[in-house]
């Protein structure tokens, strides 16, 4: 068992009324799964992904991640947990414009006390694996959307996380680029990485092993 959500509720108070963003979510995720979260706009997909990624807090319920009960942890420990085990991939890539491809890949390692030589080796390994060695000194603005997302995924993978969370990873890409990215996810999943993605597309959802449908914050 990688993670377990029990009776998770999340709400905001607006004008004296309680508006639920997540309602009674129960979810078990085993290592090696590839899950797609689907649902219309405003159904709570991204909120759920952020709760799983510990970027966002919830108001009620239990969340266990690798036998740690996240809901009892302090902010700082929670942050340490996701920094160690979770990699994030975003719809708009979120690469740092001021850094080259190589430096973008290196950045997460800087915060994790790797030695310079180790960092170099890991970055080189990643560039090699994703076949982007030739692009290493380019800035994000010089790459196509598909290439940028490739770098985004490489950056998420560089510190060997157990779980990849992807929020509409192909949302800004054309269909051909999107297909390539999904193929990559599939391949990573086969190598043993657990993936949870949010998507609008039925076609993309088919790459996964399980689909979770949300409507108004509830699993259906």
């Amino acid at each position: 068992m990688l993670l377990q959500l029990n009776n998770i509720f999340k709400w905001v108070n607006s004008g004296g009324q309680r508006i639920f963003l997540l309602k009674d979510i129960n979810l078990n995720v085993e290592e090696g799964e590839f899950i797609s979260i689907m649902g219309p706009s405003g159904s709570g997909k991204s909120t759920l992904l952020n709760v799983i990624g510990m970027l966002d807090a919830f108001d009620e319920g239990e969340y266990n991640f690798l036998d740690e009960s996240v809901h009892t942890l302090k902010e700082k420990h929670r942050a340490n947990l996701y920094k160690e085990y979770i990699g994030f991939v975003f719809q708009s890539y979120h690469l740092l414009d001021e850094l080259t491809v190589k430096e973008n890949l290196e950045m997460p390692l800087l915060y994790k006390k790797f030695k310079g030589s180790e960092r170099k080796a890991m970055v080189a390994d990643m560039l090699d694996r994703f076949n982007i060695v030739g692009k290493k000194d380019l800035f994000p603005a010089q790459l196509s959307g598909g290439q940028q997302q490739l770098v985004g995924i490489a950056r998420a993978l560089i510190s060997s996380p157990k779980l990849i969370l992807a929020d509409e990873p192909t949302g800004n890409l054309n269909s051909k680029q999107g297909e390539e990215i999904m193929e990559l996810f599939k391949q990573l999943n086969n190598e043993g990485v657990t993936i949870i993605q949010v998507t609008h597309s039925e076609k993309n959802a088919e790459y996964g092993s399980r689909v979770i449908n949300l409507l108004d914050g509830r699993m259906i």
């Binding site: 970027l55 994030f88 979120h94 690469l95 997460p108 915060y111 994790k112 950056r155 998420a156 510190s159």
Partner: peptide, 16 residues
């Protein structure tokens, strides 16, 4: 703020 978000997500501590 985007840069800060990314840095935090990939593991930057507040002190860093």
């Amino acid at each position: 703020s985007g840069e800060i978000g990314v840095r935090k997500v990939v593991g930057a501590r507040k002190n860093a």
